[in-house]
């Protein structure tokens, strides 16, 4: 039986349409959210501003400082962090064959948060903060994995339990640093950063953080078909010709890299890495060739919307983790019930 060209063509068109949608969604949302804020700028005004600026070289000074200097880096940061967190969530869910794996449940976020807080406390620069976040994040995920291994087997429940234990350990470390920081008037800064905020986004923050996210994401995106086989049991993956331990290491490193960068720029933002991959699977199925691009698009869009709400809803900024938890908890319960516990 040969494959009907007609059928391939049809699925090709569908795929193309989906790609266009996934690319346009965050871009369109970004343009709309760009105008939100204390100074509201309509989409038409944004286009006029850009048109005048690029064509005639006449940049409106007031709009330039608000739109380009303040809001643009923040929008880019929201898109990047959202995408990084959900892609790393999808990656961890596959390499640990565990639908509940995420930066939060595997304690990577807590580890990276501890590393970043430690470096901040020691007044390190942005590079130091990121390296420290990455180092401790990776120690955390390794600890979680080692603790959960019983007789060479890793069960879903053990991963989640040991993730809780390791996360508690690193949270205690963060609390300790905060106690020490109190006397040095650094507490508000660390607290606010920990609860998640994109408020400090400037172009030079991006300059330091984006490379790690881009490297990690490119790697995972390029190897995304491998995630399919990684989600099977270890014996199955191995007998299909995959070096399971090495791939798990590579994927975990890439994911941790992205989380470390996201945490050092934006603090601990919970739920995104757990929630978005599940939503993507519900929309497009479990094939990681579809889940990873969808996670990038949906994750970025999700965090962009949340952050736009966080900075416009009230006079004071609302920490992102509070909103993601309020939205995430009920949404996740709904997802679990509607997928009837089907897992990945």
């Amino acid at each position: 039986m040969s494959v009907m060209p007609e059928e391939i063509k049809k699925s090709g068109i569908r795929r193309f349409g989906r790609s266009v949608f996934l690319i346009l969604l965050p871009l369109l949302l970004a343009i709309v959210c760009w105008g939100f804020g204390r100074l509201h700028v309509s989409v038409a005004a944004i286009f006029r501003f850009l048109n005048d600026g690029i064509r005639a070289g006449q940049w409106d000074q007031r709009l330039f400082s608000v739109l380009i200097n303040l809001r643009l880096p923040r929008i880019i940061l929201a898109l990047a962090c959202g995408a990084a967190l959900s892609v790393s969530g999808a990656t961890f869910q596959s390499v640990f064959a565990n639908p509940l794996a995420s930066p939060d449940t595997l304690a990577v976020a807590a580890g990276a948060g501890f590393g970043a807080a430690l470096a901040l406390y020691n007044r390190q620069n942005m590079i130091g903060v990121q390296l420290s976040a990455m180092g401790f994040g990776f120690i955390a995920v390794c600890l979680t994995y080692v603790v959960s291994r019983i007789k060479g087997r890793v069960t879903t429940i053990m991963i989640v339990l040991s993730g809780m234990v390791v996360a508690a350990l690193f949270q205690a470390g963060i609390s300790l640093i905060m106690t020490l920081a109190e006397s040095e008037a650094m507490l508000p800064a660390i607290t606010f950063w920990l609860m998640g905020s994109l408020a400090s986004a400037r172009f030079n923050t991006l300059l330091y953080g984006m490379p790690l996210i881009i490297i990690g994401m490119t790697l995972i995106f390029a190897m995304r078909w491998r995630l399919n086989v990684m989600a099977l049991s270890d014996d199955e993956a191995r007998t299909l010709g995959v070096n399971v331990q090495r791939m798990r290491l590579v994927f975990s490193l890439a994911a941790t890299m992205m989380i470390a960068a996201a945490v050092s720029m934006a603090g601990q933002i919970g739920w995104v890495g757990l929630l978005i991959p599940h939503i993507c699977r519900m929309c497009f199925g479990s094939d990681h060739r579809d889940v990873i691009p969808a996670s990038i698009s949906f994750g970025g869009s999700f965090l962009l919307l949340i952050d736009s709400f966080a900075r416009t809803a009230s006079a004071a900024e609302i920490p992102l983790s509070i909103i993601t938890a309020i939205l995430g908890a009920p949404l996740f319960i709904f997802l679990l019930h509607s997928s009837k516990g089907d897992g990945l």
């Binding site: 399919n228 995959v242 897992g343």
Partner: peptide
């Protein structure tokens, strides 16, 4: 099964030993 792959996606995984880590199944 835990993972909701389609039958075709599952069968394609049999090609893993023939395809490198950066490759995807082709025509």
């Amino acid at each position: 099964q835990q993972i909701a792959y389609t039958v075709e996606q599952m069968i394609l995984l049999g090609r893993s030993a023939h395809l490198g880590p950066f490759a995807q199944p082709r025509g």
